[in-house]
Amino acid sequence: MKIMVAIKRVVDYAVKIRIKSDKTGVETTNVKMSMNPFCEIALEEALKIKESGFASEVIAVSMGPAQCVDTLRTGLAMGADRAIHVDAPATLFPLSVAKLLKALVEVEKPGLLILGKQAIDDDCNQTGQMVAGLLNWPQGTFASKVVLDKEKNVATVDREVDGGLETADLRLNQPRYATLPNIMKAKSKAIKKMTAEELKVEMRSDMEVVQVIEPPKRKAGVIVSSVDELVDKLMNEAHVI
């Protein structure tokens, strides 16, 4: 069985996000870009499944401009066997990505498709569900544990539900580091380049970004000097007691 993993190049998790001055989007020039942390977890899970003998090959795929190849290299250095880069404009909406993934699944015919829960740049959390719908495949979302049964060809997925643990699915696994021997091996692994036309996907966007603005700034806290003042503020300003 092959496993396909979608990985996305995003502004690094640790970078403070800045809005472009013309409000058309997020500033990405001269900003550190890395693999989306949730995609890292997805890839780690695929590699673990392969290591335990349930899969024969892990294919990393990414879509976007030429620099996506760097992110795919990271995936190969972590241990993916080969990669596919679909050349596309920088701004892709979830439905377009889902259509491209569907086309890639039809070409590569993987037995399992693993995606990170969401990308940390737009936080959409839509692509996985859309591609499952387009393929008419069963899906498990927000996985915190994945168990495969080879004989029955069944995957059992645990997911965590409400309770305020938004990052609970980060607990699925801890992604591995790219070690030098693996970086060396990755040099000889193939990254196939494809286009949307080849995959017969029409890159039409039904969405338009009107404006990107920062959320309102949080007001600075105040230090109160007495319990009475605190009670007064809670009562008359915050209206919570």
Binding site: Y13, V15, S34, M35, P37, A77, Y177
Partner: peptide
């Protein structure tokens, strides 16, 4: 042996 950081984390 060695590892190369792939992101800021």
């Amino acid at each position: 042996d060695g590892a190369l950081a792939q992101d800021m984390n």
